[in-house]
Design a protein around this nucleic acid. Structure first.
Lengths: 310, 310
DNA sequence: CTGTGGTGCCGGAACGTTCCGGCATGTCGG
DNA sequence: CCGACATGCCGGAACGTTCCGGCACCACAG
């Protein structure tokens, strides 16, 4: 019984008789044999691991956490591990990278994008160069659908609070809003805040916007979770969210469901997005997809009382 | 120039003259040499990686996301990678494990706890056996402090909504509440919900509790984020949170800050907790800590308007 | 009987690093 | 001048796996 035969039997490669194979498997099980990953990876010149980076923005944490779990699931399905990459560390030894919402001004993202590794981004990279694979959603179109809905509910002076254009997602939301307004002959009111703006900053932005333009009758919030803080603000100012001012969020979360009234928002299906990113990366690694591949990940508008004007 | 000399120079081990060392470093930098992790780990019989598991509960996502980033930071400081472990995968090849809030009834946690790897848990494992290291916080005591504060604000009929005792944290909150009530001669009103209860379930629990016991004048919420959904509920029922019913949460988050009124809560400092878990694990791996070590991680009560009865 | 091809198994080399022991050379005290 | 010891460098083995080529055997056609 040579190591070669054992190896072949365990991996199902080479030429091994059924009987020998059964004996090897039985022995391996009895001895509790576990192949040594380092040795295997050394020999195969692969690491069995992919790297994952997401912006370290706690205000979007529900979204990113679900995304991370999705990537891990997709990797596990392909017998791969996932290691998290945060700033500081030297470029890690991985076979490929998944970058969630890569931001143009993130130096770590820039380094990872130019590391020469097969890379998939969730949303396009707004900086120089493009990843080998991109999973993207139709944010602009869905914001358009949201606007159609707000318009149907009677809004004619919509405003948007959105993160600056450092992320592709924010840019798409921004662009979708402006396009829709242009197509419908409405003047777009837009206020930008930092990507990681804490909610009270968003709240302050909303207050200023409404003071400046009291005629606004619908407010769309980009930053996740922030819309939840706006209802109370509106009431303070004597407005009734859902009646004289429609309120919507571009990122669904439990907070939107729980707000008073519950807030219409866009469900980005982050977990599925993560799975799709991993799948695309493995398709690239296996040659099943060509560099430059783009895949669309569906998202969904969820209408709630905050825009029903019931 | 032999490989041995190069290796010694790069790692600072062995006997190498300063001049040779400088030449080696220069050459390595010029060639862009990166040591091969698989080969190194094969030789050293270590993986350079620790595994991290957290309950896959999106309602606590802000907490766990911060915790995860903390662990990654602590690992990076020790030149280690972190791979995420979720169900399904065979026991991964790692040098140690960090388990966040291990639950007694999680089969994956049971498997990991008995994998024979150096293990650190954040909070004790409520099942059989104990990890080699535990990072824990004084939840019961802090809940006591919260109760002192509620009592000082005039509450005399407190109630608690908390997850069942599957997690050590929930058990500590529960126990701390009951102890305080016993010490102060008050009847403890407790309602338990599942650990991963969605917020509307918590809301329903609160509604039933208040219908059953209208005399309740202070409500403490265990599940993260859930308290935010309770304010609107109270208003619906004609109560005013912060005045005729004090409201507090055992887990701080942005939602607590943003709620109307802002909700008094306990800041669990999850990121620091993650860093401490990683540190303890590396101390164990390096023999700087003995198996059985326990370290206390400080948490903090944050008082806001929901309990000020201003 | 010979050549051809398939099957089952195996030995040895290779992946890139680290570690052990050893060989020169130099220094210094006796 | 000789032994003892330190310094600088190196060769070879080892970690556990996978892969390439080869050997022995058998079946079968010509």
């Amino acid at each position: 019984m040579s190591k070669t035969t054992a190896s072949d039997a365990l991996r199902g490669s080479g030429r091994v008789s059924a009987e020998t194979k059964a004996r090897v498997l039985a022995a391996a099980a009895a001895l509790g044999y576990v192949p040594n990953g380092s040795a295997r990876h050394l020999r195969r010149a692969s690491t069995g691991t992919i790297g994952l980076h997401v912006p370290e923005v706690l205000t979007r944490s529900v979204y990113y956490m679900a995304f991370v779990f999705g990537v891990v699931q997709g990797a596990a399905d392909n017998d791969y591990d996932v290691t998290l990459i945060t700033s500081g560390r030297r470029t890690p030894r991985v076979d490929g990278l998944v970058l969630g919402d890569p931001m143009a001004d993130d130096p770590l993202v820039a380094r990872l994008m130019s590391a020469g590794l097969p890379t998939v981004t969730c949303e396009r990279f707004p900086g120089a160069g493009q990843a080998d694979g991109v999973v993207l959603s139709q944010h602009a179109e869905t914001v358009g659908a949201l606007m159609d809905h707000l318009s149907a509910s009677g809004a004619s002076r919509p405003a948007l609070i959105v993160a600056g254009d450092a992320s592709d997602w924010a840019a798409a939301v921004h662009g979708g809003f402006r396009d829709w307004c242009a197509r419908h002959g409405m003047e777009p009111q837009v206020r930008t805040v930092p990507f990681d703006a804490p909610a009270d900053e968003v709240r302050r932005a909303a207050r200023e916007l409404l003071a400046l333009r009291p005629e606004i009758d619908a407010l769309v919030c980009g930053p996740a979770g922030a819309a939840a803080g706006i209802g109370p603000l509106l009431r303070e100012e004597g407005r009734t969210p859902g009646r004289d001012l429609l309120l919507a969020s571009c990122v669904d979360s439990q907070a939107m469901q729980l707000a008073d009234p519950p807030i219409t928002s866009i469900d980005l299906r982050p977990r599925e997005a993560g799975v799709r990113c991993a799948e695309l990366l493995f398709d690239l690694l296996a040659g099943r997809a060509r560099p430059g591949a783009e895949r669309v990940h569906p998202i969904e508008l969820i209408v709630r009382d905050s825009t029903r004007r019931a």
